[in-house]
């Protein structure tokens, strides 16, 4: 096992950031940690790396408690922090070299590690430029390069694609997959369902400090296999219909987004739903049915959207 977390609890004063959390991640997994803002994803990472004191529970990394051999364990981990953490006054190459040295590399291993990390993140051509001259995507890639220079056994990426263009995002997602193919275990943290769905072999959905579901994408999908998602377009949505819909036994959830009402049904029976619309005398402009996505799994399990503003 690469990571074993048992019954972890972390409080900030009265606030429960991690709530009786259990998690195991095996060798070679590309593990996705999906959850909304404030779910406790970064807090979990901090606990794993010993960057924050925990209130209860045990954590083993590579089969050992961190405290038994902190340096040796940390030498095999690369953390890509959520906020870009590189030195603005050093060039890309100098940044990666400094972190390589701090990971204990020297001589030929250092030289090769730096060259490989830059090559891998596509920064070789601009290695002598400073991050201040970089685009958002290049900065994110440098942020990654600094964490893989020592060829770690475990890489933890905390939202590595926040705020960048689709092209850079695809580049990063591809490199994460490549890293994993090179036998590196990856923990990939995100609140983008599509990202996690496209690359991860196993996924845990985190909310309010707890893991509310975990498994492969198929396993998670099966949780709501019989569900159906119906989007109904109306000219003038009103909130009273949401209340009414939610009272129907077959309806798991109903939300409004603009002129569309989105309904998650536990059975494939639309009659009662349509009756409600007719009773309310709403003009229906379109009806669409879909099979549920990870987004819907989250919606169904928590009753909230993964990201604010997302449908």
């Amino acid at each position: 096992m690469i990571i074993e977390v048992n019954d972890l609890i972390k409080r900030y004063k009265d606030f429960l950031a991690i709530d009786h959390l259990n998690l195991t991640i095996g060798d070679g997994e590309l593990f996705g940690l999906l959850g909304p803002n404030g779910a406790g994803k970064t807090t979990l990472v901090n606990a794993i790396l010993g960057l924050t004191a925990v209130d209860h529970g045990t954590i083993n990394v590579f089969g050992e408690a961190l405290s038994t051999s902190e340096r040796a364990i940390k030498k095999q981990i690369g953390l890509v922090p959520q906020d870009i953490a590189v030195y603005p006054e050093l060039t890309a190459q100098e940044n990666v070299t400094l972190f390589g040295k701090l990971f204990g590399l020297r001589g030929e291993a250092l030289r090769k590690g730096v060259a490989d990390a830059l090559e891998f993140t596509g920064l070789t051509d601009i290695r002598n430029k400073k991050p201040s001259q970089f685009s958002g995507g290049m900065k994110r890639r440098l942020n990654i390069a600094c964490a893989i220079v020592h060829k770690p056994r475990l890489i933890i990426m905390d939202e590595p694609t926040v705020g960048i263009d689709p092209q850079s995002r695809n580049y990063i997602l591809e490199s994460v997959k490549k890293l994993n193919d090179m036998h590196c275990t990856v923990i990939y943290i995100s609140h983008y369902m599509e990202e996690v769905a496209s690359i991860c072999t196993r996924i845990a959905i985190v909310d309010k400090g707890r893991i509310i579901a975990k498994g492969t994408q198929e396993e998670l999908g099966r949780l709501i296999e019989d569900d159906q998602v119906v989007s109904v377009g109306v000219t003038a949505p009103d909130y009273s219909i949401i209340e009414k819909l939610k009272r129907l036994p077959a309806v798991k959830d109903a939300t409004v987004d603009g002129h569309t009402i989105r309904i998650v049904l536990s059975e494939r029976k639309l009659n009662a739903v349509l009756d409600t619309f007719l009773e309310e005398d709403l003009t229906i402009t379109k009806i669409e049915t879909n099979t549920p996505t990870l987004e819907d799994v989250f919606l169904t399990l928590t009753g909230r959207a993964l990201r604010e503003g997302a449908q």
Partner: peptide, 18 residues
């Protein structure tokens, strides 16, 4: 107060040496 400090803590480096 900076992301750099956060990253440093994740490294196999004694903070005092840094």
């Amino acid at each position: 107060l900076s992301p750099i400090g956060y990253r440093i803590r994740s490294l196999p480096v004694r903070q005092i040496n840094y």
